[in-house]
Design a protein around this nucleic acid. Structure first.
Length: 426
RNA sequence: GGAGAGAUGGCUGAGUGGUCGAAAGCGAUCGCCUGCUAAGCGAUUGUACGCCGUAAAGGUGUACCGCGGGUUCAAAUCCCGCUCUCUCCGCCA
């Protein structure tokens, strides 16, 4: 969430920035409530002060066995007024809070203005696209032909957008996950985390999924918990309501988790294959940083994600999301898009974002500055490193062979018991 | 699932209606002292929000003793509900 004081003092700027995101906002209800809140607060605090003073006086009088009934009667009335003002204040604050919690983050000044993903500037392009002597197949055909992906049975077991991996397909996904974890742990200095896959409402609110995007989540029926849509949620919440030491920053975490997304409103999109699933595996990198260095950290984070594809020798490009495409909580996001020859397109495989203090303000994650002793909000960042299912897609499509088999990238063979190929059947 | 105990500041821990934002100890910071270290002495030591005010500061008010309600002129303290932690039993990977 944005700082309420910041909105108050920069109303026009906030309105303009929201417009750049494509969201028109009338700021006057906010300002009216904010003023109302401060007015009530002043009244009620004055009354409380009065009550505190007089109550002390009553106490002393009683001790001296003097009569205080007049004051007691008067304070009874004061208390009643405090109570009614408190009720009103609570209502105003709830309304104000409801408003502020659904205002998205302000895009960083380096984010380009745009109206759709078409406007995302391409920052980098890496790798040579493979050439085929045949028409490259999309991964759903490859997976079914090799009997490693079973979409029909996945749908039978659960429903649409759930997939069953079999044999070397299952092993490939597992190998990819382990390869990525090891890379980030041993080469990039991240600490591995294995966190709960269900979280409570507070955690979802802290990272920004709630209250606005409940429809995108799966909620557990018996308790008010949610299946995580990304490990970002439990991992960022590790330090919720904590004060970190400046010397401990930056903190790097990497975490494997399955991710559960309702994919509300995406009917008809990517209905075939592994691209858009209700459940998929992902390795997520999460950082807590000092504000001064968070944009350097974002560059490093993105480089860490890109390195996975480099080691797998899969072509990709990196784009910077324009104002219209930027996620709710993010101030700046790079998407890494892998080349998928079977679909003749680049597809998102990682999303790396700097949330600045948007999440840490919601989550109350602060650090104490050594120089001044003052508290400040940390900046939080995260990025996929990478989405495992989509990485399987990229391997299958880029490494497919004329005979229908798929070669295992060298970097993964250590994790595949040395197996170098998923053989064609028959 | 059943029974019981508990939750107080950075930590330990006192506090059963007013003098409690909270004793004491530890820790930390600053200063003094000391040949060095240790010890000793003194001071300081939370956060949020509002208001006044400044270049920075600072001042002031309110709230906060797990969370939410209630009683009362007045709640860390009494009452109700909830959450979490611990112990025992049951169940379980």
């Amino acid at each position: 969430m944005l700082d309420i004081k910041f909105i108050r003092q920069n109303t026009e700027l906030v309105r303009k920035k929201m417009l750049e995101r494509g969201q028109e906002m009338d700021m006057s209800p906010f300002l009216n409530l904010d003023t109302r809140r401060r007015d009530i607060l002043q009244d009620v605090e004055k009354l409380r002060n009065d009550r505190n003073t007089v109550s002390k006086d009553i106490g002393e009088k009683k001790k001296k066995k003097e009569d205080a009934s007049e004051q007691i009667a008067r304070m009874g009335e004061v208390s009643a007024r405090i109570k009614s003002l408190d009720d009103e204040l609570k209502k105003v604050e709830e309304e104000l809070n409801a408003m502020i919690m659904v205002i998205p983050n302000i895009p960083h000044e380096s984010v380009e203005y745009g109206t759709s993903s078409e406007d995302n500037p391409v920052i980098r392009v890496w790798g040579e696209k493979p050439r085929f002597s045949f028409a490259p197949k999309p991964h759903w055909d490859i997976g079914e032909d090799l009997k490693i992906l079973d979409f029909e049975r996945g749908a039978k077991i659960t429903g649409a957008r759930f997939t069953l991996y079999m044999g070397l397909g299952a092993m490939l996904e597992r190998a990819i996950i382990n390869f990525m974890l090891d890379l980030h742990i041993f080469d990039h200095g991240y600490t591995e985390v294995l966190a709960p896959f269900m979280v409570n409402r507070e955690s979802m609110t802290a990272t920004g999924q709630l209250p606005k995007f409940e429809a995108d989540l799966f909620r557990v029926d018996q308790v008010d918990y949610f299946l995580i849509p990304t490990a970002e949620v439990p991992v960022t919440n590790i330090h919720r309501d904590e004060i970190l030491s400046e010397k401990d920053l930056p903190i790097y975490y990497v975490s494997y988790s399955p991710c559960f997304r309702a994919e509300a409103g995406s009917y008809g999109k990517d209905t075939r294959g592994l691209i858009r699933q209700h459940q998929f595996n992902k390795v997520e990198m999460v950082k807590f940083s000092r504000p001064e260095t968070s944009y350097d950290e974002l560059e490093k984070l993105t480089a860490n994600a890109e390195e996975v594809l480099q080691r797998l020798n899969i072509p990709y490009r990196t784009v910077s999301l324009c104002t219209a495409d930027l996620g709710f909580s993010s101030a700046k996001t790079y998407d890494v898009e892998a080349w998928l020859p079977g679909q003749d397109a680049y597809r998102e495989i990682s999303s790396c974002s700097n949330f600045e203090d948007f999440q840490s303000r919601r989550a109350a994650i602060r650090f104490r500055r050594e120089e001044t002793g003052k508290l400040d909000f940390v900046h939080t960042l995260n990025g996929s490193g990478l989405a495992a299912g989509r990485t399987v897609v990229a391997v299958l499509e880029n490494y497919q062979q004329a005979d229908g088999s798929v070669v295992i990238p060298e970097a993964l063979r250590l994790y595949m018991k040395g197996i170098d190929r998923i053989p064609a059947i028959g």
